[in-house]
Design a protein around this nucleic acid. Structure first.
Lengths: 236, 236
DNA sequence: TTCATATTTCGATGATAGTAGAACTATTAA
DNA sequence: TTAATAGTTCTACTATCATCGAAATATGAA
């Protein structure tokens, strides 16, 4: 007499649906055709899957004109996916295109609504090393020194603490096998970096690109070199 | 080019396998026949499923004589199941037996290696109210006063903090829709309560029974009445 | 050695579920 | 109004997979 996990798991067990869900892990809205393209299926098929996920409340729709935009319904759903990524096997790389995309995603990507990948982990580690945040069990705490740091960056820490969600949690990065910053603070940092144009979203993927301004600023602020982009990174 | 979540999810998507996994959520070892009985399938079928879960590293086996004892391979796997329980629909109750078991499980049960259900949440809330622990984002911290409390109970807090796992995290209780104490401290508390015979494991389920000693002690220590057991609890 | 118990392997069966073609609805542009 | 685009519904077709009987293996008991 337990809740029925299998109903939920069945929805993630199909590779088309899991591809769609991982695309939605960027936290934003996506039209059906785009999701169909990502999963390499016809629009009918994507529609069929999205309908199933709507019924069990994994995703939500917004109608705008003739488009229907889908998104993840909650961070609870994102957490399920996140926890599976920790132990999921890495995919086989079949083409040069696959290999490039893999490098890009390992280098920097969004994980639901915060930054992940090599860059995400590096930033998190730098924040710890510089005494801006401290890691307590599976959460982060902002030091007094850290309050100034975020203030200068244009992020109001208190505002993030008031939000009805985890303030600064650890999220296990599947590519780096280390923790990166998540929660309200992680989200605020991503948003601010996008706003400052240090990073930009790459179309059709969850991959993130570091701009030339970004490279300069990251080096200045954190004192390390990000390299020239995903292709210059050694694959691990 | 993401890790393949669907492979993992496919293993949880079958109701027989999910029943087996939920049985293993008590963190201990179980022989094949017992798991087959819980899932209401023949031993061959259970064996077939366990073999699949072995291959993908969800479970581990220990051979003792002619028995093969299975258990969850890691707390990472437990975390996946835990995160799904949060949004999984409640099962339909078909018989009086089901209804009784449901009450028992809602009243008190193990969740991987700590206490959950009405009793688990009540204990957690009492610990907070009495200033023994405090809730910081999604973790708990032990107050100086709390150190004495756990000392008196026979739990060495420092020893738990040294362990290579989350010390005292929040775990969302699916039946109570509130947090209860998990992590090393949650585990230590469960073990100590079993040792003191305040509670006992009920055979064939994850349900936990509060002994008469337990009722007296819980009332004394926390100042609330646990009732006479699951059957005296109002179902919510 | 012989019998009983625990578990796995093999093979056959039956049910479930993903896929895309065709047709249909809804919205936008010309 | 007509044409084009976005998305859904319906209907087969196909493939995958859980289930269990039967038989095999392995351990323990008598």
């Amino acid at each position: 007499m337990n809740p029925d996990i299998s109903k939920i798991a069945a929805l993630l067990s199909d590779s088309t649906r899991s591809t769609i869900l991982l695309s939605l892990m960027d936290g934003s809205i996506h039209p059906v055709t785009e999701l169909a393209h990502m999963a390499k299926v016809k629009p009918q098929t994507a529609s069929f899957h999205l309908h199933k996920m709507l019924e069990v409340n994994l995703v939500r729709v917004e109608k705008h004109g003739r488009h229907r935009y889908y998104k993840l319904i909650s961070s609870e759903v994102a957490k399920i996916i996140e926890s599976m990524l920790v132990i999921a096997p890495e995919p086989t790389v079949n083409s040069l295109r696959d290999s490039r995309e893999k490098s890009a995603i390992h280098f920097a990507r969004t994980c639901y609504d915060h930054l992940a990948g090599y860059i995400g982990v590096q930033i998190t580690n730098s924040l710890i090393q510089k005494g801006i945040i401290t890691k307590e069990n599976l959460n982060f705490e902002v030091t007094p020194k850290g309050l100034h740091f975020f203030e200068n960056l244009g992020i109001n820490v208190e505002e993030q603490q008031k939000k009805r969600r985890a303030f600064a949690r650890c999220c296990l990065d599947w590519s780096e096998r280390q923790h990166h910053l998540a929660g309200a603070l992680g989200n605020a940092l991503l948003e601010r970096m996008l706003e400052l144009k240090w990073i930009t979203r790459m179309p059709k993927t969850r991959a993130i690109q570091v701009t030339s301004t970004g490279r300069t600023q990251l080096e200045k602020v954190f004192g390390w070199d990000t390299g020239t982009g995903p292709l210059s990174q050694k694959s691990t």
